[in-house]
């Protein structure tokens, strides 16, 4: 469980994150949703201390992240970057093995784990001796995910993990992401500006603007009971698609309601 309590971060007088609090339950996927500059990435990076919090406290399973060294903290938290951040001078196998090696795993254990992850992520084992630049963007992002999962950390932080991919690759990767059993038990915080993606992947959504949490809750809740005009406007453009997505496919009346609502709003 991750508890974020009254976190504030200021850069040169500009408040990037303003007194934010929320909790992520174990095994839950929380999406930090917001436009660029809303403070969501800064918030994410404070969880594994890539950025040190200004004030407030973050606790993981009851223990403050400020207890102990940042290196120890980070080794227990997987991190996925938008643009992979793979080491260009390491092979795919080398990249996946970074954290297990830092943790001192033996070679055989690392090898088994690497092969397993490659298989689960749909990457042929022949790629293991290739270098990142020899792979496509989608494949690199899969390696990035494998690297984050390598040491089997209980927590995964993902910063726009599908943001740099073309739409077709993105959809296929999102689908795999949802079905990957490795991820089912993980506590995940994912940052995105893509409303569709948020609704697709989130158990709960934190909608952020100007460094503050505007509303947090289940996707359905945000849609049906927006806290204020900002939240309502935020989803308006895509409301029809989102409502369809939320819908029980057998509930005809609701479908017609949603369609009418969309039609009337349009005029």
């Amino acid at each position: 469980m991750i508890e974020v309590n009254n976190i504030t971060k200021t850069f040169d007088g500009h408040t990037a994150v303003d007194n934010v609090s929320f909790t992520v339950e174990e095994g839950e996927t929380l999406v930090l949703l917001g436009r660029s500059g809303s403070g969501k990435t800064t918030l994410l990076k404070m969880i594994n201390r890539l950025i040190e919090p200004g004030s407030g406290e973050i606790r993981i399973n009851g223990r403050s992240t400020q207890d102990g060294s940042p290196e120890e903290l980070r080794k227990k938290i997987g991190y996925v970057f938008q643009n992979t951040g793979l080491f260009p001078h390491y092979t795919i196998a080398g990249n996946i093995a970074i954290v297990p090696r830092l943790l001192g795993w033996d070679k055989e254990k690392i090898r088994k784990r690497t092969y397993l992850l490659m298989e689960k992520l749909g990457l042929p084992a022949t790629y293991l001796s290739s270098y990142p630049h020899q792979l496509s963007g989608g494949q690199q992002q899969r390696v990035g995910l494998a690297r984050a999962l390598a040491a089997d950390p209980p927590i995964l932080l993902m910063d726009e993990p599908f943001g740099a991919l073309d739409p077709i690759t993105r959809v296929s990767l999102q689908k795999d992401f949802k079905e990957l059993d490795e991820l089912k038990s993980k506590t995940i915080i994912l940052v995105t500006h893509d409303v569709q993606e948020a609704f697709e992947l989130a158990d709960r959504i934190c909608l952020m603007d100007k460094g503050r949490v505007i509303q947090a809750g289940e996707p359905r809740e945000l849609l049906s009971h927006p806290a204020d005009g900002y939240v309502k406007d935020f989803f308006d453009d895509q409301r029809f698609l989102l409502e369809v997505k939320m819908m029980d496919p057998l509930d005809h009346d609701a479908l017609i309601d949603a369609f009418n609502h969309f039609k009337n709003r349009g005029n």
């Binding site: 890539l50 940042p70 290196e71 991190y79 951040g85 080491f87 260009p88 690297r147």
Partner: peptide, 26 residues
């Protein structure tokens, strides 16, 4: 690449490990 450096930090590498495993080789 700053992204590669940040990734090395995010993996939990110490400053020394980053220097010898990432920065100097690159």
């Amino acid at each position: 690449d700053p992204l590669v450096k940040e990734a090395a930090v995010a993996m939990g590498m110490t400053r020394r490990q980053r220097l010898f495993k990432v920065e100097l080789p690159l």
